[in-house]
Design a protein around this nucleic acid. Sequence first.
RNA 1: GGCCUUAUCGUCUAACGGUUAGGACAUCGGCUUUUCAAGCCGGUAAUCCGGGUUCGAUUCCCGGUAGGGUCACCA
Length: 479
Amino acid sequence: MENQTQKVVTRFAPSPTGFVHIGNIRTALYAWAFARKNNGTFILRVEDTDKAREVDGSIEHVIASLKWLGIDWDEGPDIGGSNAPYKQSERLESYIKYAKILIEKGLAYSDPYTEEEVEAFRKKADEEKRPFLYRDHRPENTPVWDGTKPLRFKVTDIKSYEWIDVVRGHLKAGPEALDDFILIKSDGYPTYNFAHIIDDLEMGVTHVMRGDEFISSTPKFLSIFDALEIQRPEFVTLPPIMGVDGKKKLGKRDGAKDFLEYKEEGYLPSAMMNFLAFIGWSPEGEQEILTPEEFINLFDIKKIHISGGKYNEEKLDWINKEHIKKLSPEELEKNIFYWLPTELQIRKIVPLIMERISKFGDIKNMVDSGELDFFYKEPEYETSKLIYKDVPLSKIKSNLEEALGTLQNTEEADFTFEKIKALLMEIANHMDSRGEVLHPLRFALSGLDKSPDPFILADILGKKETISRINKAISLLNS
RNA sequence: GGCCUUAUCGUCUAACGGUUAGGACAUCGGCUUUUCAAGCCGGUAAUCCGGGUUCGAUUCCCGGUAGGGUCACCA
C-alpha cells in the first residue's frame, strides 16, 4: 500500500464557522508535522460549503491561530498554489464534474422528496426503533437531476466494508453504514462527504488525518472511491481529546476555548506545540520537552495513540515553564517587560518574576494585585510585622541598626547581590538566629509577608532606597 | 436503540507473551532556608471485571462492564 516514492501530501481543512480550538489545531499540527518530516506538501483548504453556518472573519482567525503556533503551509487560500482555488465554494465545477460521472454511471439521482417527507420517514423509523435508511425509500425510477433538488448517491454494492487505518489498524463497518447520502445539496453546494473526497483526489492528498468521529462515515467514503474507481488515500485516525471532566470529547459546545486565547494568556507557541504534540502521540524515549524542530524530527504516525486523552492544563503550565527556562535572557526580558508597567521594567527583577510564573499572563495578576508595587513605591505596613518570633523589639531595632551601619559603609560599586549577601550573612551568623535580623530587614524593604530575600531586594532597590527604607523602619520602632 | 470504537497510578503515558509494571504532571514528605518562589532528594499510587489460549497474559481470543463516536440538505 505504502508507496515509498510518492510524495507525502497532507491538508488541514477547517470550516469557517468561528474560532478553532485545541482539537482542531492538534489535527493541523500532526498533518503539518508529518508533511514536514517527509519533505512533503501541507495544504490549507477551506471547507465553506455551509453558507448558513459561515462566520465572517473565520478564515483570518484560523490563519492567525496557525501562524502563531508556527505552522506554515505550502498551498492555501491566502498564498495560492498549483491546486487553486483552496475554498470549496470556488471549486463547484469540480464537484459537478464528478457528480456527472456518477450520474452517467447510474450511481446518482435526484431526491424527489421534500425535506418534510424525508423527515417523516425518519420519524417513523425512530418510532419503530429501527435505523433509518434513505435507501429503503429510494424511488423506483430515480428522477433526472436538474440542480434544484438534492443529488443523492445510489449505493448499489451494499456490503460490509473493511479497511486499514494507519493508527487503528483493521477497521470494519456493517452494511447499515451505507446509504444514499446527499452529494450536492439543493442550494448547489456539495456536502462534506462528497466535496472532501473530490478535493483530496484533485490535490493529490496521500494521508487523510482526522478525528475518530469520521470512522462511522468511512464506509460512505469508500463506496464513493469504488463508484468513481479512484484510489483511496491512507486513513490516519487521531484519538479524541477529552474535556477536563473526562466525560466528553472536547468541543466548542462544551467550552473549548478559542486557540488564540492561549496567546492572550501569555503561553509560548513552542510550549503550546509541545503540549499539543503529546495529546495523542508520544515519541520513543522519555524526553517530554521538545522544540518544534525536535518534534518534527521525532514525529512518527505509527506512534499516534489509539485511545483518547484528557486535556490537562496543569501539564500545559509545566511544559510552558520548561520552555520559558530555555529562553535566551533577551527573549525572556522582552516577554516579561511586555507585561510590566514601565516603572517595573527593571532588568534585575526578571529572574524573580520568572521563577514565580508558569505563563507570562501570570505577571498581569502579580501587577494587578499590587505585590510588585514595593519595587517603586515605599511600602506601608504595620510596625509589629517587623518583629521576628519572640525577639524583643529593642533587639530587632539594634539588629537593623547594625545592618544599616554595614550597608551605609558599603561603596556604591559594591552594592551588589553577592556582596550584600556576604555582608549581611556575616551579621546574621552571629545572631542567635539569622531570622532576627534577616526577617525585619526583608520586611522593612518589601512590607510583605512573602517576598524574595533581602539581599536581592537591596540589590534591586539600590543603596539609597535601601538605606532610606531601613531608616524608616527604625524610626517606626522608636515611636 | 443499531452500528463502530476504546480501556495501565488522580492525570498523560512506557513496557518482542517472561520487568521489583518504567517515566512525567499533580500530590505528600525531607533537604535548603528569614518568609515565599525556585531548586535538589525521596514516598504514596495503576494493568476495569470474568472466562479462555499458554509453562507463563498488561500484552492474544471471547463475554461483561464502563467510556467515547456515529446514525443531517453540519463538517
